[in-house]
Each structure stands twice: as structure tokens, then as C-alpha cells.
Amino acid sequence: MSLLVIDNLQVNYGAIKALRGISLKVEPGQIVTLIGSNGAGKSTTLRAISGLVKPASGSILFEGKPIGGAAPHKIVRLGISQAPEGRGIFANLTVAENLALGAFQRRDAGVEADREKALGLFPRLRERFQQNAGTLSGGEQQMLAIARALMARPRLLLLDEPSLGLAPQVTQTIFRIIRDINASGTTILLVEQNANMALDVAHHAYVLEVGEIVLSDAAAKLAQSDEVRKHYLGVG
């Protein structure tokens, strides 16, 4: 069974149709990426999954259960967490407090072990553990956003533009860690403008254009397609 199934999802911001009926699937264990230019509706898709915006129509099924329109905190409880666009860290709180908030819903004994695991993935965060998150560099903030989302122990991790505004080297590091996270069993839905990096790391990819999915295939195949190469990879 697919972990996430979106069927004919429409989202409107007032009179603007941000999503015009998109359908996609995320298989367990995979990295699925959603690429497309600015304003195509990538972030809106993640917001709808997380419950931040209400779908106008269509359905979102997570592990077979409909979650469309549920409150954001309930969706986290179901096993979906998000590192949002712009990182969304709490700059007024310390790194430690940010991570603790990621596990806000959890009361099990595994929280501490998960924090150690997250700090193992991002050693920089351990160095800055008691620092205010607002003092971190952009790359460190992105690491914190991902680590914090992992603290919810999600079965589906949503990543919104993790490379945004980062130096190429930092982006490389982040994507290496994204691969590691996936290798340890977390399914990932990745939204990216950096199609090169995204197609390289993902198993399956969808191309979004003005609220509609125009292409869908295995990531490796899409990376070879002329259209994608021309419009999104800047070659040909």
C-alpha cells in the first residue's frame, strides 16, 4: 500500500487556484521529489498535507486514512512532520528547546535516543546545543529544521526547499544526510527548486507547473528526459 496517496487535490488562496487537481503517490521507503519553478504549487502541496491549508476538493490519504482538512497538530500525531520553507526555526529558543519541541507530541522513552541520533546526523547542532537558534548560520538552521522534524519520529518526512539560500557545499552536505535519513527507513517527500540535486537523490519525481502535474516518472529517467533537462536542469 502506498504511504501517501493524493487524489485530484485542489487548493485555492482566495480567487487564486494554487493546485488545480493534482494526484500523486509516495511509496514507503522512497524519496519522492516534487520539482517545478517558483509558484508552481510545490509548497502548497506540502502545506495541504500538513493541514496548514484546507483543500477545496480532492483527497489526501495517509496509510489509507483520509487526513485532508485535519488540524496540523493532529497530522503530526499521525506520523507526518515537516521542515518548512524558510526553516521555521524558533529563533528565540535554544537549539535544545527547538529539538524538544519537535518531539512535543511524544511521551515515549525513545525521545532522548532520537535526539542523540539527530545530533549524530548533524554534529554541528551538538556544538551549538545551548545556543539561541537565531544565532545559527543558514545551513545550521536548515540542519536544525530537519533534525527537529525527525524528533517527531515521522513515517513521512516533508522537506520544503532544504537547499534554499545555501552555499553549494552546504547543500551537498544536507542532501547527503537526506539520503542517510532515507536509508535508515524514513520515507521522504522532497520539494525542491534545485532539480539537479533532487533528481539525483530521489527514487521518483513529479514535475509541477502552475498547479498541475505535467510529468511523473522514476527520477533517473526524468533526469534524462529532454524536457526536464531543458527547463529544469539548465542543459540542452
Partner: peptide, 23 residues
């Protein structure tokens, strides 16, 4: 715990809700 939720909400209600906080 409630206090850290309050501080998170005061910084950003949207991001607090993504933490699983019932705003």
C-alpha cells in the same frame, strides 16, 4: 512543556502547529 509551547506559539503560530502543538 506548556511554557515552551507558549513561547513557540508566540514566535510563530504556524510553525508551532507543525510541531504538533495544539495552538
Amino acid at each position: 512543556r506548556m511554557g515552551s509551547a507558549m513561547r513557540a506559539v508566540s514566535f510563530s503560530t504556524r510553525n508551532a502547529s507543525l510541531m504538533g502543538i495544539n495552538v
